[in-house]
Amino acid sequence: MKDIQAEINKGRRAFIKKVLEGTIAGSLLLVIPAGAMDIPEQITGMREEDGPFIKKKKFAFIVDITRCIGCGSCCVADKNEYNVPDGHYRTWVERYVIDYDDNVYVDSPNGGLDGYQVPREDVPEANVRDTFFVPKLCNMCEKPSCVQVCPVGATYQTDDGFVLIDQKRCVACSYCVQACPYSVRFINPVTKTADKCTWCYHRVRKGLLPACVNVCPVQARLFGDLNDRESQVYRILHEPHVISVLKPGMGNKPSLHYVGLRREVV
């Protein structure tokens, strides 16, 4: 209890000092919601980033299919974080069932938000060769189709590699929804604008992990800095592993990587 309090105070003091010294671009920090900074930093050094963009870190997201248990905590956390309207998914978890005749059955009832309570009824239990789960989210492409097609500059790619949406300029023409090869976009019926996973940019900028990464009980979702050679994501991406991205032929160069991606996964 004490050490946490001390940690918070330390972070906060250093932070306020920075603001006072004016090292942080003025407008960026005036409106930080109360409470955000009370939580200890999860991504070390993020609160020292002071420019309009993250400079020292290059983030990557890794999903480890061999670890995912399909519990859907990520989906729950995501829905809670953004109040995502029903029937739309910033992230979802797919279940793959492969039988002994190599037939592939895929489903994702309610995007996996309610978890997987029952086996597929159309595949006889005895015939199931393999079952695995694949979480999906924004691929944060290096060459994003959605940014290319947005007619008004409402979907954009920041200098730190995040693809984000300007809710105040989006006209909701849905062109980005059509252009995304991964179907991670939707039109939010509440804001009436395009919406998608942001890798929790607002959390990351304040030193917190994306909500889904934070809740994953089995570390199937990893988020980290590729500039840090000690980081888990760096090690995974630079050690021998079965690593791939989704639909590499699209040429979008996703920065979302999958460990143990199977050929059945689209």
């Binding site: 940014v147 290319q148 097609v149 947005c150 007619p151 008004v152 500059g153 409402a154 300029r169 989006c170 006209v171 909701a172 023409c173 849905s174 062109y175 039109i187 009436k192 604008t193």
Partner: peptide, 28 residues
């Protein structure tokens, strides 16, 4: 039909105010 389709028809002129040079739709 386009205006009726847009989620924010009042922002339709954004297409001409800040057209993106890479978008196939911005030229319309």
């Amino acid at each position: 039909p386009l205006l009726n389709h847009l989620g924010h028809p009042e922002r339709a002129f954004n297409m001409m105010v800040t057209p993106s040079s890479t978008s196939a739709m911005a030229g319309f």
